[in-house]
């Protein structure tokens, strides 16, 4: 009972955990920053995959659109980092406004494939078509253009980490609200039975469009946060082959849950960090991991934590009951 009342503190626990880890492993600060950004990216995908039942092989496209819009702003127009992130937010809205109506009418695998195509088109666009602006494969560098920000100079990695934590905290609470609100229920209902949803009188198309918008905006903002973090972008961010990474991260965390994305990002990037110390390319490992998670592990890390939690609670209750009984005797 008490545990349940503490549930709303979940996001705070996660942030606190990151903060403690940052001081326990001071040389891993970029890793923790990356986990936080990746969590936001995975959240975007989880809305599609976990709540709406759509698998997209094109998430890197939205990520790189966000990254490039922030980067282009920083490289050519202005130096305010917050404005850059806001630009990515607007680009996310715009993308969803343009693509949403056609994408949300598609079912199942068409959605997946069109997104994969978008991804290919995105790479082509940033690598070749817009080469005068994006410098193609050489990437776009703009760190020196970024202005100092008031209060906290987020150009410094150690400060940027705190900024990211604040963003993540906000994102987690927003996300928790989606899960609890009518929106989350409606999305889950529509993914299991869209027809019944129409006969309950809901406009499934518009509701999905709205959720798609949230998902795209999460991705573009994650992209912008990446580009501010690195100070440069190149087209490899949006590569098609990376589409599976975010799917895997979502699956590892546990799909359709509030805290799944965080544990997914943690598990996935942790594994990547570990594997890449002895393997340069790691498609092989990603593939194997995805299969294992899909077939043997489909509740994900967060699911395991929940199971462990309820097991502990059960044993706790039994233990308590027993002690009460012995006391009665």
């Amino acid at each position: 009972m008490k545990l349940k009342n503490l549930e709303f503190l979940g996001p705070v626990f996660i942030i606190a955990g990151l903060l403690v880890s940052r001081y326990l492993f001071p040389n891993k600060i970029t890793f923790f920053t990356e986990i936080s950004i990746y969590t936001i990216y995975v959240m975007g995908n989880n809305i599609l995959m976990g709540y709406m039942g759509y698998t997209s092989f094109g998430q890197p496209f939205y990520l790189s659109c966000g990254a490039y819009s922030a980067a282009i702003y920083l490289a050519y127009i202005g130096g305010n980092v917050f404005v850059a992130i806001f630009v990515a937010f607007l680009v996310g809205l715009l993308l969803s406004f343009i693509l949403g109506p056609s994408l949300m009418r598609l079912k199942g695998s068409y959605f997946t494939l069109i997104n994969a195509s978008l991804c290919a088109i995105g790479v082509f666009m940033f690598e070749r078509l817009l080469i005068d602006i994006t410098n193609g494969n050489d990437g776009l560098w703009y760190r020196s253009n970024m202005h100092k920000t008031p209060l906290l100079d987020i150009r410094m990695p150690q400060n940027y980490f705190f900024f990211i934590l604040i963003v993540l905290l906000a994102a987690l609470y927003l996300y928790r609200k989606i899960d609890r609100s009518a929106l989350g229920t409606v999305l889950k209902a529509a993914s299991t039975n869209p027809r019944k949803m129409r006969f309950l009188g809901y406009n499934v198309f518009r509701i999905r469009w709205m959720a798609f918008t949230i998902s795209v905006v999460f991705s573009t903002i994650a992209g912008a946060l990446y580009s501010v973090n690195f100070g440069f972008v190149n087209p490899s961010l949006g590569e098609n082959s990376r589409a599976i990474e975010v799917l895997l991260a979502t699956l590892i965390g546990g799909i359709g849950t509030v805290y799944g994305p965080f544990f997914g990002a943690l598990g996935f990037l942790g594994m990547k960090d570990f594997v890449s110390s002895f393997l340069s390319r790691w498609e092989f490992v990603v593939g194997i991991m995805t299969l294992i998670v899909l077939f043997k592990f489909n509740r994900g890390l967060w699911g395991m934590i929940q199971d462990a939690g309820s097991f502990l609670a059960d044993t706790g209750r039994k233990f308590k009951n027993n002690s009460v009984k012995t006391a009665e005797k």
Binding site: T55, S109, I244, E283, F284, V286, T290, L294
Partner: peptide, 11 residues
């Protein structure tokens, strides 16, 4: 789709 894509990645 995710399964076959993973197989593709393994390949």
């Amino acid at each position: 789709m995710v399964v076959t894509f993973s197989v593709f990645m393994i390949g």
